[in-house]
């Protein structure tokens, strides 16, 4: 059992080992308990400063990271690209180096371009946490998803997880596939063929176009959000209409009851109610959508804590 992460940055799940993930989960267990105390704060990171750089919109992830940082007593600065020098033409490395010149130790970054986090980790002197880079990876989301499955079912190994929807544009799907496979779960994908990457089966996942068949196979169904902002133009590039998508790939109560077993329902948020899932399914007793959000803070605290442990202490 290792006590230390094998990596200095969290750029993607792909670079983590199963041991790393288990360590993050064990540490998150501790933080989950802290989050239920009357005073939900520990002093571990009080000598560190973290910059949250969001070059793309986010509510949940951003609030979750900020809460995680504050509950670890880190100093936090927030930055979003709207109203910043980015619109004046400053490059990413320049922007970040200017922020680091103000003595920032860690950077949490969301960026619309795949690979932005990896690029940054090679060019600036700070620990990088990828909070989503384009259609590439969203590692903390995958960690909290797997952690929520582990909490609900007691294990991840051997669990059959179905990921439904816009696989093509989803960093959540890719990170989830890597994470679940490293932990020994089976993964199946389901969605319109226009939203299914061409060679995705080479990752060792099953692909099933029929949602009803796929639902009968799985223990957990993760209903991804249709990324309207990435469908190009008016958002009707890859499927005829939201209504048709909802009919073929949406989960309503009737379809859910037809499965005939207690499939756990997940959604990374924000939900388009009536599209990916209906209100009755989102608020169903087997839905762990809000547990995912709650666990997100503990997981992010664990990631920041374990990465911070590897930052050498500055002397003087």
């Amino acid at each position: 059992m290792s006590d230390q992460l094998s990596t200095e940055h969290l750029l993607g799940i792909k670079a983590l080992s199963a041991e790393d993930i288990e360590l993050i989960f064990r540490t998150a267990d501790g933080f989950k308990e802290v989050l239920n105390r009357p005073i939900k704060k520990v002093p571990s990171l009080r000598d560190l400063t973290i910059a949250n750089l969001f070059f793309e919109n986010s509510t949940r992830t951003r609030i979750s990271f900020e809460l995680a940082e504050k509950r670890l007593s880190a100093d936090v600065v927030n930055f979003s690209s709207g109203g910043s020098s980015v619109s004046k033409g400053e490059t990413l490395v320049d922007t970040v180096n200017n922020i680091l010149a103000m003595k920032v130790d860690m950077v949490v970054m969301r960026h619309p371009d795949p690979g932005a986090a990896v690029f940054l980790s090679r060019h600036v002197n700070a620990r990088i946490v990828n909070a989503g880079d384009g259609t590439h990876e969203h590692p903390t989301q995958a960690l909290l998803d797997a952690y929520s499955i582990r909490e609900k079912l007691g294990r991840v190994k051997g669990v059959k997880v179905l990921i439904v929807g816009d696989i093509l544009h989803s960093r959540v799907a890719l990170s989830n596939i890597f994470c679940l496979q490293k932990l020994g779960a089976e993964v199946m994908l389901c969605g319109p063929s226009t939203l299914m990457p061409r060679h995705i089966a080479t990752l060792g996942v099953k692909v099933e176009p029929d949602l009803d068949k796929a639902l009968r196979w799985c223990d957990v169904a993760n209903m991804l959000r249709i990324q309207l902002e990435r469908q190009g133009g008016d958002g009707i590039g890859n499927f005829p209409s939201l209504r048709e998508y909802a009919m073929r790939y949406g989960l309503d109560l009737e379809r859910y009851q037809r499965i005939g077993k207690d499939v756990v329902i997940m959604h990374p948020g924000p939900i388009n109610r009536g599209v990916e899932v209906t209100t009755q399914v989102a608020d169903h007793a087997n839905s762990i959508i809000l547990d995912q959000v709650e666990n997100g803070v503990a997981i992010r605290m664990a990631v920041l804590y374990l990465l911070a442990a590897r930052i050498p202490r500055s002397v003087g």
Binding site: D3, Q4, R26, T27, D29, G30, F31, E33, S44, D47, Y305, L306, A308, A309, I311, R313
Partner: peptide
């Protein structure tokens, strides 16, 4: 924390 080579692991 950060004075040791490995971070201490939490118990219950």
């Amino acid at each position: 924390f950060r004075h040791r080579s490995t971070p201490p692991a939490p118990s219950n």
